[in-house]
C-alpha cells in the first residue's frame, strides 16, 4: 500500500481531466438545438473517432499492419467479434513473419 504524493496528484489530475471530457459532451448537447445537419454529424462521430484511433497503426506502421488491417476489415463484415480478433492477430503474425 505505497503511494507517493506526487503520483497521487498526477492520478487525480488525470482522473479530473478524463471525467471532464466524458461529461462535457453530455452538457454541450443538452444546450444545443439539434438540426438535421448536426444530427448527421453526430451520427458520424463513432466511426470517425474509431477510424482516427486506429489509422496510424493500420496505415503508417508497416506493410504487415496495413495488410492485416485489410484482411481484418473484410472479416469484420462477415464474422463475429472473437473470430475477427483471431483473424486480425493471426494475419498480422503471418504477415510479420513474411514481410518482417
Amino acid at each position: 500500500m505505497s503511494i507517493e504524493p506526487t503520483t497521487l496528484f498526477v492520478i487525480l489530475g488525470m482522473a479530473a481531466a478524463t471525467y471532464f471530457t466524458r461529461i462535457a459532451g453530455f452538457v454541450l448537447v443538452s444546450h444545443v438545438h439539434m438540426g438535421k445537419r448536426l444530427e448527421t454529424a453526430l451520427q458520424a462521430v463513432p466511426p470517425a473517432v474509431l477510424m482516427s484511433v486506429i489509422a496510424p497503426t493500420a496505415f503508417a506502421s508497416g506493410y504487415a499492419e496495413a495488410g492485416a488491417t485489410a484482411i481484418t476489415a473484410v472479416a469484420a463484415f462477415r464474422l463475429p467479434l472473437l473470430a475477427v480478433i483471431a483473424v486480425g492477430v493471426g494475419s498480422l503474425l503471418v504477415l510479420r513473419a513474411v514481410v518482417g
Partner: peptide, 9 residues
C-alpha cells in the same frame, strides 16, 4: 474525443 462521443451518446 470523449466530448464528441458524449455529445453523440
Amino acid at each position: 474525443r470523449h466530448i464528441l462521443m458524449g455529445a453523440s451518446f
